[in-house]
Design a protein around this nucleic acid. Structure first.
Length: 262
DNA sequence: CGGCTTTGACCTGCGC
DNA sequence: GCGCAGGTCAAAGCCG
């Protein structure tokens, strides 16, 4: 069993089970569903735009709007007081991936802004931020102390833009090495990507509770479910992408653990 | 030279 | 109040 430490939210909700309408094409589509299921009724419209609310992204955390007229050279020393509010409104979800790579290529450009040693873990935790201007999405990447081959990735926020590698298409070395070689990999919000998600029927769309509080979702389709216990045919089993490495440590079947956070 | 990583320092929240 | 741990910043260095 994999403990997500503080990643475990107090408000994990079960996933919508309506498979007929459940056709996410990306992990962030899944995340949208999470948000829809977990987002409380919107507060009275005030300062935040509707798009911000829709994206569930507070208006530019750590930006000058939060820090007011802070000296840019000192703003990191005077954090906004409403950190609790920020934490409460920043949606997060985490998933575990079995990979040797520390930083999965999900189609977005990330900038590493920090690394910290984690208590009770010999492996450091890395902090990444989306490099797109105005996009405050962050992610944390850490290797499981229980299984070094497992990487726990925690996303915080939602991208408000397309994947920056899309317009360049095949010209991008990233898309060529990740998308081409790893079809259903972590290329979130790739409208042009052609892998098809086949929603599992309601029963397979099970929520696996690990340790009594971790909802685990079988949220990927046939391709993902092929990788596990079922005997994959060599013809259809040609996906060796990153998602293929996603595991369920506590479950016998292969699937992806997505831990909705708030 | 621009973008990225590394790394030490700083800040904040939380438990005792 | 204090100490610890997590999260963030930005200077410095690296690299293509």
């Amino acid at each position: 069993m994999y403990i997500m430490k503080d990643e475990i939210p107090s408000c994990m909700l079960e996933f919508p089970m309506d498979s007929s309408s459940f056709k996410p094409s990306t992990l962030f589509d899944l995340f949208d569903l999470f948000s829809a299921a977990t987002t409380p009724p919107p507060p009275p419209p005030s300062s935040s735009s509707s798009s911000d609310r829709l994206l569930n992204i507070p208006s530019t955390p750590n930006s000058s709007s939060d820090t007011g007229d802070l000296d840019p050279f000192n703003k990191h020393k005077l954090k906004p007081k409403n950190k609790n509010i920020k934490r409460a409104t920043q949606p997060r979800f985490a998933f575990m991936t079995k990979t040797e790579m520390d930083h999965l290529d999900d189609g977005y450009r990330w900038r590493k802004y920090g690394q910290k040693a984690v208590k009770n873990s010999p492996y450091p935790r890395s902090y990444y931020r989306c490099t797109t201007a105005g996009c405050g999405v962050k992610k944390r990447v850490e290797r499981s102390s229980h299984d070094p081959s497992v990487v726990v990735t925690t996303y915080e926020g939602q991208h408000n833009h397309q994947s920056p590698i899309l317009p360049r298409g095949s010209l991008s070395p990233s898309i060529s090495t990740s998308a081409a070689l790893h079809p259903p990999s972590l290329l979130f919000q790739h409208q042009q990507y052609t892998y098809t998600y086949t929603p599992p029927p309601p029963p397979p769309m099970e929520v696996v509770r690990c340790g009594g509080f971790e909802p685990m979702f079988h949220c990927f389709g046939q391709e993902r479910r092929r990788i596990g216990g079922s005997s994959p045919s060599s013809a259809s089993f040609k996906d060796h992408g990153l998602l293929q490495d996603m595991i369920v440590p506590s479950s016998s079947s292969s699937s992806l653990h997505i831990l909705k956070e708030e």
